[in-house]
Amino acid sequence: MTDYGHDPLFGVFITPTNQPAMQPVDLAIVADRAGLDLATFQDHPYQPRFHDTWTLLSYVAARTERILVSGNVLNLPLRDPAVLARSAASLDLLSGGRFELGIGSGGFWDAIEAMGGRRLTPGQGVQALDEAIQIIRGIWATKEPGRLQVDGEYYQVSGAKRGPAPAHDIGVWIGAYKPRMLRLTGRAGDGWLPSLGYLKGGPSDLEEMNKHIDDSAERAGRDPRAVRRMLNISGQFTPTGRGLFSGSSQDWAEHAAALALTYGTSGFILAADDPTTIQLFASEVAPAARELIAAERGTKNVPEQGRQRPAFQEATNDQ
């Protein structure tokens, strides 16, 4: 059980509904003005009730001032990696370095195939994502000599020109749950972005999942602390707590701090489509959680390094 030492970030996971058309944009503006760090949107290109996520990300970046934007997570099977790399670099340049690349291998294969995508097995999806990340990073690597050559089984580029370089080192955040995807995250990712609701065993699953990432990172010659651990969360603000992320703002802050100090979770992204909830999360939960984490670490300016912590307790007592 490890605290990887990253400064915590707090964000929102907004439904990209297109009715009413401006709702997700307005909610992102609320999050930006409230002081949250990150606005994210799921990516289901086959869903006609949703905006195209890339178009939405671009529009939101233009309408906000400081908040980071990201897909949560972008659907690789319907987004060509070389084009995605250039699109990401352009959006990062236009937004002043406010784009991060959340990406996944795909999941709803009937819908993906109906849109012209290629159906893959889980193992094939991992390999395809690995090849795509090589291409994406290669396009961004403008200081590397020569044109880009990647001869993968699922994705190929043959002499592609590199560039443009993004405004900052864009993080590649991978949505992963199974061991093969977790190992890919450890050797090739900058961040890990699962959803708490998909963890069958609850937060305790994070320990074993982190181990897959850490072991893979070390085998690849990387420091496991190079991979930021994030979590999509949901819950309710109530007078009396009934479980994880249920209760008062202080309860929520204690739950977040426990996850950070026990499992190294340093990004908390709240699924919310309500302005009041977003503002409460930003104004009360985020600052209180940051204070609790900093107090436990013993400093307000913690270097990004691993720290061992006691077992997770407070946030799971009522589950």
Rank of each mutant, 00 (worst) to 15 (best):
Y59D: 05
L84V: 11
D92Y: 11
T55V: 13
H51N: 11
I67P: 05
F108V: 13
D26V: 06
G102T: 02
I29G: 04
T55F: 08
A88W: 03
G71I: 06
V30T: 14
V83W: 08
A31T: 02
F41K: 05
A89N: 10
Y59R: 14
R63P: 04
L36S: 02
D43Q: 11
R66D: 06
Q47G: 01
A39F: 00
G102Q: 01
L36N: 02
P77C: 12
D52F: 03
S70K: 10
F99W: 07
G104D: 06
R63H: 12
G96Q: 08
L74A: 15
V73E: 03
G107C: 03
S87C: 08
T40A: 15
D32S: 02
E65H: 13
S90Q: 09
R66A: 09
S58W: 04
L68C: 04
Y46R: 04
N75W: 05
S70W: 09
D43E: 11
T40K: 11
V83K: 03
Y59V: 13
T64N: 06
R66T: 13
D92G: 07
V60E: 00
S70N: 05
R66F: 03
T53S: 14
T40D: 04
R66N: 13
L74I: 15
E100R: 15
L101R: 14
A89P: 08
V30N: 01
G107F: 13
V25H: 00
L36A: 02
T64Q: 06
Q23Y: 08
T40E: 03
L84R: 09
A85T: 09
L91Y: 03
L94M: 14
D32P: 08
F41H: 12
L93H: 04
N72W: 06
S70Y: 11
R66C: 01
G96V: 09
L38E: 09
L38C: 04
S87E: 15
D92V: 09
Q23P: 09
A82F: 06
L36P: 00
R79L: 10
